[in-house]
Structure formats: structure tokens, C-alpha cells
Amino acid sequence: MRRRRFLASVAVAATLPLAGCSDPRGSVRLTDVSDDTALAKQWATPIDALSDSYRDLVVGAVEDDAERATVTDTNPPFEPPNPIEYERSYYDVGYEVTNERTQTQYGVESTFDPDPPPERTVAYADLPAVDRAKLDRILDPDTARDSGEAFGIGVRYTDAEAGESVVVPEPEYDGVTREGATFGIAVRDSREVTVADYRYRADLLAADAAGVAAVARERFQFSFDGLPSDQRALLDEAKGDEVESEDPPSEAFVALVERFRAHDAVELDPYFGGEWLLRDGGADWWADVRFPESMRGE
């Protein structure tokens, strides 16, 4: 669940069926993960599913490359909720926080093809390197924009970088030209923010899929004992499929969900639902449970 939300945000930020977030019904889906490879794929995130920047942090962490594995930001940009698979091994990836300090964040805005056109312009290639690096995204002619459309971002400059810049704290030019396009440039505001260096580390969790599957089973696996027949029927129906509750949910559905919630989840969102690793009928099942509306947030 969080695994899917995480992939959607970085590979892209899928979620626990977020399409059903406004649906008052709940659901249970069981996927057979008895095979080690199936369980590993369900729990771990392949490095190729990460965005380029996150992938670079992980590789830097695995290779113990401090520069590549360190990023400066106001918050940790990357908090892996599950193991990362890299070159067929599996890693727990985390970070350490060091060197907290303040920087100035500027609200910089570019306006595509402004009317009237700016009088004082500078070619993008003639901008200082620090401005090109920080403002490339809002000065991109390939980005489809309508004439007069503005695009703003918050960018942080150290005092030394601001000393090199021709954009902050006050623009020395009214516009920037690049590949035949003209951008108006303005600084709308500034404020002090706290930043830190986030040094990512990667601890080997398992050398192969069998190893990471064994870790998952040891940490999360459980079984249900003595299920009443109505709950048993719901559970069996959910194997390889999805069972949705009625609205309002039946007592059996609520009781079955409560049984899941009595165990440690692989992933849990108190509002939407969670994911559990269940042993049932001689097989391992990845349980994706969406809570009915009446149980959300409890």
C-alpha cells in the first residue's frame, strides 16, 4: 500500500486503491506470494522503479560514495518504506541528518513570451552557472506554455551562490532569452529556511530473493485461528480476487478487518487501510485491505 503510493510518487509518487478513497465500501484482496520471488517482488522496490535522483542516492549509499549519497534539503527527500532491490540484492535504505543551517529561499517566477517584452535581457548561456543550475526548469523552451503564462518555483541559494547570481536577491535583467524563446524573470519573495545534509546509507538486508522473503515472513507473517464460517467464506473468496464490503459493511466483514488490524501490518495507513502477510491454507498471502468508511481513521 504505502509501497504503491511510494512508487507512484517516485517513479512517477498508485496507492492503496486511492481510486476508491471516496467509496464508502471496504475491500480485501489476497495475492499468493508463497514463491520467494513473488514475495520479494511484492515487498521490495526495484531500483529501476525509482526516479533518477532517488536512484542516484541509493547507488551512492550502496557504494559508500558520500558525495553521491548526500543531498541538501529542508526535509528528507526520500524515505524508502520498504527494501530496495539493487543488482539482485536487497537493502534497507535510510539516512543521517547533519549540518543543519539556514539558507535563503527565493520565489523566482518566469513568464513565457511576456507582453510587453522585457527591455533588459540576457542570454541563458551567459547566466552564471549557479543560476542555470537552479533555474533551468523554469527557463525551458521545450516546456509547453501559453504566451504570458507564469511559472514559479522556490529555489535556495547560499550566501556565496547569491553573490554569484544575477537573478537573486534582485534580478539584474528583466528577461532571459534561450533558443529563440524569451522569459520574463522576477523574484517575488524570499524567506529564511532551515536545511540539512541528508547522508543516505544502505544496509544489506538479504543477498537474494529467498533471503528477503525469509525476512518478510519472520517480521510480518501470521495466521488466523478458528475463523467463523462467514469470515472464512469472505477470506476464501478474496484469494486471487477482491471482495468488497456492502455499505454499510456486514458484521462479518468488519470482524475480518479487525482481525487483520490486530496484527502488525507490513504497511498501514489508519485512514485508508493496509497490507499484511497472512499464512493460510498452507500458502502465503499478501493481503491488501481497504477499510470501509466507518472504520477509517480509527
Rank of each mutant, 00 (worst) to 15 (best):
P169H: 04
A123K: 01
P83M: 09
A214D: 14
Y91K: 10
D159V: 07
A133D: 15
T194K: 12
S110A: 15
P114M: 12
I47V: 13
N82W: 05
P141S: 09
F260G: 09
T177D: 13
A69N: 07
R5Y: 06
P169G: 01
I84F: 07
I138R: 02
P24W: 10
L256W: 06
E218M: 05
E119V: 06
D35P: 02
L39I: 09
V71F: 10
D159A: 12
Y173D: 03
A61Y: 13
D159T: 09
R191N: 10
V243T: 14
F112Q: 06
Q231N: 01
F222Y: 14
L278T: 05
T104C: 05
E63P: 00
E267L: 03
L57P: 03
A66R: 14
V155M: 10
E79T: 14
L127A: 07
A202K: 10
A265T: 03
T104S: 10
L205Q: 06
R137S: 13
V243N: 09
V176G: 02
V195S: 05
D203P: 00
R4K: 07
P128V: 08
T72P: 04
D64G: 04
P270Q: 02
S9P: 00
A252M: 06
P171V: 08
L57G: 05
G154N: 11
L139I: 05
Y90F: 15
A69W: 08
A40D: 02
Y271V: 02
Y95H: 15
R188F: 00
E242F: 00
T177P: 09
T31I: 12
D225E: 15
V93R: 09
F222T: 10
A133Q: 15
R137A: 14
Y198T: 08
E237N: 14
P46K: 09
D65N: 15
D208R: 04
G94D: 15
Q231I: 02
D142F: 11
A209L: 07
D142G: 09
Q42T: 13
R188Q: 12
A209V: 06
L205F: 03
E119S: 07
L30D: 10
Y200C: 11
A238S: 15
S89P: 03
G297Q: 02
V212E: 02
F224W: 14
R217Q: 13
A133I: 03
F112N: 06
A162W: 12
S51A: 13
D113C: 00
R259Q: 07
R261H: 06
R145H: 12
A8K: 12
G281A: 12
L234Y: 11
R219G: 00
I153C: 00
D35K: 12
E67P: 00
A238F: 04
A209W: 10
D48A: 14
F272R: 00
A233W: 01
G297F: 05
E192K: 14
R5M: 06
R120P: 01
R25W: 00
D269I: 02
G184V: 04
A40S: 11
